[in-house]
């Protein structure tokens, strides 16, 4: 209620919490690594730079794998893919979920019934197995992987958006718009969706982490794009040498862990910043 003289920006609010600050620091590191991968490792991640099985913290920061490829380079280039998959898949999920959930929640009736049957169908598919099947059938290319992740993940978001839209639609200010003769699309997009935005942002931020995990899982199972170095592929490749070269599995594993952790921390901080009621 008290109007502060200086309104803190969203970013400042996130940074003011310890979880948000840690998450932001970690994620920024990963983003910088991805951005400067080609500067730091101009030879690329597949180039054999030295002897195989060199342990970490020696000649090479993270050591080399069984073919003598620099693991640090793999981590840097893999970060690009992880972030790309996370961002694009989430974008698709949010778009699909918002459109379907928004229309279903706003119009109700048969549109709602139909949309909910469709989402139920997608929700009954075990998500990861569903993604495996899609990638196995369509072929392991990056667009297919992103598509597969989006297809198996959009339904819960659609249901969330639908529930939120329904509750906002019941508020009196929407009735006021109706009594002014405002059109449906304008009410949905201009009046209702901004009130649902915080929920979408929070759910979407957590979706990024899930998408990164999915991609790593698919690559680990050998369903990654063979022309691209990813963290999942590195873990899968290192699995057979885990007794002799632990770092081949551990280091990309830690990379996945820290990235997902960072995004989850930011998601929590976002939730606190955007929905302060949830805290009390």
């Amino acid at each position: 209620m008290l109007s502060n003289s200086a309104k803190p920006t969203l970013l400042r609010k996130i940074l003011s919490t310890p979880t948000g600050a840690i998450g932001m620091a970690l994620l920024t590191t990963v983003i910088l690594l991805a951005l400067f991968a080609s500067v730091l490792f101009p030879e690329g991640p597949f180039e054999m730079v030295g002897a195989p099985f060199r342990p970490p913290f020696g000649e090479y920061l993270f050591g080399t794998d069984m073919l003598g490829r620099d693991i640090a380079a793999g981590i840097a280039y893999g970060a690009r893919i992880s972030l790309l998959v996370g961002a694009v898949a989430t974008l698709v999920i949010v778009l699909l979920g918002t459109v379907v959930g928004g229309l279903a929640g706003y119009y109700g009736g048969w549109i709602d019934t139909a949309a909910m049957r469709v989402t139920e169908f997608f929700q009954t598919i075990p998500t990861f197995i569903g993604a495996i099947v899609i990638v196995a059938v369509l072929g392991p290319t990056l667009p297919n992987i992103i598509g597969a992740i989006a297809v198996v993940s959009w339904a819960p978001l659609a249901r969330l958006v639908r529930a939120e839209v329904r509750s906002v639609k019941g508020r009196e200010f929407v009735e006021a718009c109706l009594s002014l003769g405002m059109g449906d699309m304008r009410i949905l997009v201009v009046q209702i969706l901004p009130n649902v935005l915080s929920t979408i942002v929070v759910a979407g931020s957590l979706m990024v982490a899930t998408a990164i995990l999915f991609e790593a899982g698919l690559s680990f199972l050998g369903l990654g794009d063979p022309n691209i170095m990813t963290w999942g592929f590195m873990i899968g490749a290192g699995r057979s040498a885990i007794r002799t070269a632990w770092w081949m599995v551990t280091i990309p594993g830690i990379a996945v862990l820290l990235t997902v952790l960072a995004i989850n921390l930011i998601g929590d901080a976002l939730n606190e910043a955007l929905n302060p009621r949830a805290k009390r």
């Binding site: 009196e172 200010f173 009735e175 006021a176 009046q191 901004p194 009130n195």
Partner: peptide
């Protein structure tokens, strides 16, 4: 409407 807290976006 009754509730001025709900009737303004």
């Amino acid at each position: 409407f009754q509730d001025p807290f709900a009737s303004l976006n």
